[in-house]
Design a protein around this nucleic acid. Structure first.
Lengths: 347, 347
DNA sequence: TAAATAGGATGAAACGTTTAATCATTGATC
DNA sequence: GATCAATGATTAAACGTTTCATCCTATTTA
């Protein structure tokens, strides 16, 4: 069953292939009569023009790549966050008749496919300031928007970030306002990841404003995952009761942490306040529900794809980077420091 | 900055384009000498051959489509499950040098892009027995694997399902073994969705084996989501205390349900046992942790893509459909019926 | 010495589109 | 009646590959 081509349609409709092409694209001049006939033939044989041929001619692909960091065994990172992002990007893209390729980037052969497939644009997520990818992408000369990236020399790159520093600041302020002064932090590797570093900077600034010096000993660096959070419960437990609150820089880690703490007999928020970050859907449905910093991933994705689109159309947005707002979402997992009658912990 | 093509490489290396092509693909006969020279030139200009041109010739795309159901506003359905799937599929695909397009399918123009882009294969998720898509896909004549689909006349279609009936059966057996006899069920629309219907059939069979007749009044049909589960808590509450256990056919709904119940003062599992389905990552990290039916999404995805690959290579797997095993994951949210001292509920 | 063979490289067609340039027909204008 | 303009449709080049058939040159074989 050989694929039907524009040539077949032309023959069947008794016109030239140019006319068929013109009918499909609304270009050139075609009489209503002919157009109708051609469309009928197209419809009857449900013919669809080959994008390979078209894009070969037009030198583009109508394809957007989402470059997702890979974790163990070269797999895409396991975080529901990415699906949220894909959802947002795909929705916008589909409206513009673009499609979305989701791909992990590995060390060996990171990006040749971008070039080979002539992607119209790419969205790169979570690239750290010193990554070699950065140079590669620049070389490619493809419209690119960086998401959640804090880049060293990237002044003229398109960057879309959430206001991570503000998030760290808001969360810490909230805990301070509840009377907490020694606040532990759970985060991924602070040094290499701009996102967590920014949140940490917000954290320290808030503390400073209250005349408290940030104490690196209260920082627990752990993989950002349920298990990572779970395992760090032990360390947090050792820090208590001097430490009365924990700020986890990720909801996922916070959920693991809470589980771990509860198993150790710690009551949340009575004994310890826990604060998350992201406001993933589950945050509001935990017991206790999780106070967190909300970032609107949908907006983030939408902003990214919109910028890609305007870059594709040749109009580079005026401002290079945009920082989207975050918001404190107060729930049950944070409370005033110490119940009056529970100043000392049982040992 | 015009894209560099095979022609440029040929000119620079002082050979014909045929030779360049041969060098790249290891076809034809090329001397080691020439090969080296060509490769150098390719490397120096980091040239990457255009897939559009290549695939135009080869009549394929090295592209796999994942067709995701769309929910409100035409967006991809919001369920972390899909990301798990994409992760698995993408990993396998990348090894075979295929790429993955994620696309929602809408009513208006469901699938022309499959044809236009000449996808090498598609993975269709959650298509119900009577969907018009089914016919369209068959028409396309593209290798397709159906995931989580119970199809009416689909004897010769490639279907990969989990053993949903067994899952329903196992979960119900478990609850029965704990002494529960009136067990409510929370599910999406049973009629149209094969998956939930199967689980329901497993449920009724288990009951029958204990001489209990399934009671349709104990079935709460609700959207499969956190909020859906949350809202159904009210109905479940009305059914208690005669009903002593709930089987939610989705973890996501179960999580919402538990939250709702806890807000109503119901203790889990003391007052009511709750059982989920899927074993999403969060299930083990809730308080109480959720007893559930585990399905291995990674394996599901891997199986699907493997079958696609063999279909692409022309060898249609012998058995048309495969059913993967599920497993009971016992945790804290289910317990023996009634504490001895709490036979009657306070009213 | 002539013919056959093998290795190495090339020419050109084909893949299915788009599009600029061209052509043919008809009706309007001078 | 000749020129022009407008309309409708066609021809052919181009896009960047792959690949088959062909060609050249040196070496081996008869």
């Amino acid at each position: 069953m050989n694929k039907i081509t524009i040539k077949d349609i032309a023959a069947l409709a008794g016109v030239s292939i140019a006319t068929v092409s013109n009918v499909m694209n609304g270009t050139g001049r075609v009489s209503g009569e002919t157009a109708k006939r051609v469309l009928q033939v197209i419809d009857r044989h449900d013919y669809a023009p080959s994008t390979a041929a078209r894009f070969l001619k037009e030198r583009r692909s109508q394809l957007i790549g989402i470059l997702v960091p890979t974790g163990e065994r070269g797999r895409l990172e396991d975080n529901p966050f990415y699906w949220q992002l894909v959802m947002a990007v795909e929705a916008e893209a589909r409206e513009e008749r673009l499609h979305v390729i989701v791909s992990g980037v590995t060390e060996e052969d990171p990006l040749t496919f971008v070039q080979e497939r002539q992607l119209d644009g790419i969205i790169a997520i979570g690239i750290t300031g010193d990554s070699p990818l950065l140079g590669r992408i620049a070389q490619l000369d493809v419209p690119c928007v960086y998401l959640d990236c804090y880049l060293a020399g990237g002044e003229n790159l398109q960057v879309v970030n959430m206001n991570d520093r503000m998030g760290g600041y808001l969360g810490t302020k909230h805990l301070l306002s509840l009377g907490h002064e020694r606040i532990a932090v759970i985060a991924g590797d602070i040094v290499t990841s701009g996102v967590y570093e920014e949140r940490w900077l917000g954290y320290t600034r808030a503390l400073e404003e209250s005349g408290i010096e940030a104490d690196r000993a209260l920082l627990v660096e752990t993989p950002v995952s349920l298990l990572g959070g779970y395992h760090s419960a032990q360390q947090v437990y050792m820090l208590s009761p001097k430490v009365t609150a924990v700020f986890a820089f990720s909801d996922v880690a916070a959920i693991g942490l809470m589980k771990g703490l509860q198993e150790l007999g710690v009551r949340i928020p009575d004994d310890l306040s826990v604060m998350g970050y992201d406001d993933i859907d589950y945050a509001g449905f935990l017991t206790p529900s999780l106070t967190t910093i909300r970032q609107d991933i949908g907006t983030k994705g939408k902003t990214a794809i919109r910028r890609i689109l305007s870059m594709i159309r040749g109009s580079v947005p005026a401002e290079h980077s945009v920082t989207l707002p975050v918001e404190l979402k107060r729930r049950q997992s944070t409370a005033l420091r110490f119940q009056p009658n529970s100043i000392q912990k049982e040992e």
